[in-house]
């Protein structure tokens, strides 16, 4: 494992041990389930953000996709579609929303920060209009529901599986190499024939797919869906997890394993603080400091590795 991921892993282990020793019930079954359910959506949305940050892009609308798309699954199921089919169509629709983000970004040449800031509000607006801002109950068919969220550990198992898949895509596949190349030197990659615009489009689609998939799973687990949530908290946690995990915003370097560990760090802090009765505001403060420290460490590690002549591992 690369140095960046090792550093954040050590932080996660130290924090886990600290809460284990100091806080009764922290490693209790119920608490670990709660922890896993906090971590999973942040991690999975984070996997998409890692892909985009590696490209030097960002998706501010991912959290809103996460919140909004389950309403589509709910509507489809209410119209009599089997739940599994409703889920599949919803995930595809999430990819389509990602495609819109990508197309606007590459066709208009806008920074994705702007594109997705716009679509964030647009999606939220559509959601509020379509639902009249009223909550809905999420359906959960027997077997399908168990796999997609009802079984306590299903959400984190999905996150684990997606982590493996996304790791393979970014670090072991051709498209992943093109993501790194495009993020590292966009003009150079284009000169070498890499279809850089298509790569960017593809990454936005991935972000939309991931956010809507984990959105549906999370919604089935919770049972109710609330259009009052804009999803920005989830998005910011996901971006924070990616950055804390060692992905740079400057492009060319990213790690989904780091993002997963980053999400675990956030989860340990959040759940640990809650259990100890420390108020949630302290969590926000710690989160802010953690992001600053992580960025500083990131930059520092970058300098060290340049001085030493670089890491051995490629990509």
């Amino acid at each position: 494992m690369a140095r960046r991921e090792t550093a954040i892993l050590v932080v996660a282990v130290v924090m886990f041990v600290y809460f284990w020793v100091s806080t009764p019930n922290f490693v209790g079954y119920n608490n670990l389930v709660t922890l896993s359910q906090f971590v999973a959506p942040i991690a999975v949305i984070g996997f998409g953000e890692v892909m985009l940050l590696t490209l030097g892009e960002i998706d501010l609308s991912s959290g809103t996709i996460f919140v909004a798309m389950p309403f589509l699954a709910e509507r489809l199921a209410a119209h009599g579609l089997p739940l599994l089919l409703a889920i599949v169509l919803t995930v595809i629709a999430g990819g389509a929303v990602g495609a819109i983000n990508g197309l606007i970004t590459i066709l208009l040449g806008l920074p994705s920060f702007i594109t997705t800031l716009g679509t964030l509000f647009a999606i939220d607006g559509v959601l509020l209009l379509a639902t009249n801002a009223t909550e809905a109950g999420m359906p959960h068919g027997a077997t399908v529901g168990t796999v997609f969220g009802i079984y306590s550990w299903s959400e984190i198992l999905w996150a684990l599986g997606l982590c493996v898949v996304m790791y393979i895509i970014l670090h072991r596949s051709r498209i992943g190499l093109h993501v790194v190349a495009t993020g590292g030197n966009r003009n150079g990659a284009a000169e070498a024939g890499v279809p850089v615009r298509r790569v960017v489009l593809w990454a936005f689609v991935m972000s939309g797919l991931l956010a809507s998939l984990i959105g549906v799973i999370d919604a089935i687990r919770v049972g109710t869906i609330d259009p009052g949530n804009t999803g920005t908290t989830e998005m910011f946690y996901a971006v924070a997890a990616a950055i804390i995990g060692g992905t740079a915003m400057t492009g060319g370097r990213g790690t989904q394993i780091g993002a997963a560990i980053g999400a675990i760090v956030l989860g340990i802090l959040y759940v640990g603080f809650t259990l100890r009765g420390i108020n949630a505001n302290a969590f926000i403060l710690i989160l802010g400091i953690a992001i600053l420290v992580a960025m500083a460490v990131n930059v520092q590690l970058g300098r060290v590795s340049q001085r030493r002549g670089g890491r051995k591992k490629a990509t």
Partner: peptide
Amino acid sequence: YQDLALIPQLSVYHNLFLNRE
């Protein structure tokens, strides 16, 4: 190319095979 079109974060061999992996 004059700017070489190499990717700083990729290994020598990945650069050699870029887009013809």
